[in-house]
Amino acid sequence: MADRYRLTSVDTVTEEGAWAFTVRDEHDDTASYFLVPCEDDDRPPVQAWVNRCTHEAQRLYREDVGAVTREGGVVCPKHGSMFDTCSGHCDNGDAADTTLPSVDVDVEDGQVYLVDDDVRYLYDGLPNDDGDDDGSSSTSHLQF
Results as ranks from 00 to 15, higher is better:
residue 1 M to A: 14
residue 7 L to M: 07
residue 7 L to E: 06
residue 8 T to G: 10
residue 10 V to A: 10
residue 13 V to L: 08
residue 13 V to W: 07
residue 15 E to M: 08
residue 17 G to S: 03
residue 22 T to H: 03
residue 22 T to L: 08
residue 22 T to R: 05
residue 25 D to A: 01
residue 27 H to C: 00
residue 27 H to G: 01
residue 28 D to E: 14
residue 31 A to C: 11
residue 32 S to D: 15
residue 32 S to P: 05
residue 37 P to D: 07
residue 42 D to T: 13
residue 45 P to Q: 11
residue 45 P to E: 10
residue 45 P to M: 12
residue 45 P to D: 10
residue 46 V to R: 09
residue 47 Q to S: 15
residue 47 Q to Y: 01
residue 49 W to I: 07
residue 52 R to I: 01
residue 53 C to Q: 04
residue 53 C to A: 04
residue 55 H to N: 03
residue 56 E to W: 09
residue 57 A to Q: 10
residue 60 L to Q: 05
residue 60 L to T: 07
residue 62 R to H: 12
residue 62 R to T: 13
residue 64 D to G: 02
residue 65 V to Y: 13
residue 65 V to E: 15
residue 68 V to H: 13
residue 69 T to M: 04
residue 69 T to Y: 01
residue 69 T to C: 15
residue 70 R to T: 09
residue 71 E to H: 11
residue 71 E to Q: 12
residue 72 G to I: 01
residue 73 G to D: 11
residue 76 C to L: 04
residue 76 C to W: 02
residue 77 P to H: 05
residue 78 K to F: 14
residue 78 K to V: 12
residue 79 H to N: 07
residue 79 H to P: 07
residue 79 H to Y: 03
residue 79 H to L: 02
residue 83 F to W: 02
residue 83 F to E: 02
residue 85 T to G: 00
residue 89 H to K: 15
residue 89 H to W: 14
residue 89 H to A: 15
residue 90 C to L: 04
residue 90 C to A: 15
residue 91 D to W: 11
residue 91 D to R: 11
residue 91 D to S: 13
residue 92 N to Y: 00
residue 93 G to M: 04
residue 96 A to W: 01
residue 99 T to N: 06
residue 99 T to L: 03
residue 100 L to F: 08
residue 101 P to G: 05
residue 101 P to F: 11
residue 101 P to C: 07
residue 102 S to R: 14
residue 103 V to I: 15
residue 104 D to R: 13
residue 104 D to Y: 01
residue 104 D to F: 02
residue 104 D to H: 09
residue 105 V to E: 02
residue 107 V to E: 11
residue 107 V to A: 08
residue 107 V to D: 08
residue 107 V to Q: 06
residue 109 D to C: 02
residue 109 D to A: 15
residue 110 G to Q: 09
residue 113 Y to W: 14
residue 118 D to A: 13
residue 120 R to L: 10
residue 121 Y to V: 04
residue 122 L to H: 00
residue 122 L to T: 01
residue 123 Y to R: 13
residue 123 Y to E: 13
residue 124 D to E: 15
residue 124 D to T: 14
residue 125 G to Y: 08
residue 127 P to K: 07
residue 128 N to I: 09
residue 129 D to K: 05
residue 129 D to C: 07
residue 131 G to R: 03
residue 131 G to I: 06
residue 131 G to A: 05
residue 133 D to I: 04
residue 135 G to N: 04
residue 135 G to L: 04
residue 135 G to R: 02
residue 136 S to H: 12
residue 137 S to R: 11
residue 139 T to W: 10
residue 139 T to M: 09
residue 139 T to V: 13
residue 141 H to P: 00
residue 142 L to K: 10
residue 142 L to A: 05
residue 142 L to G: 13
residue 143 Q to E: 13
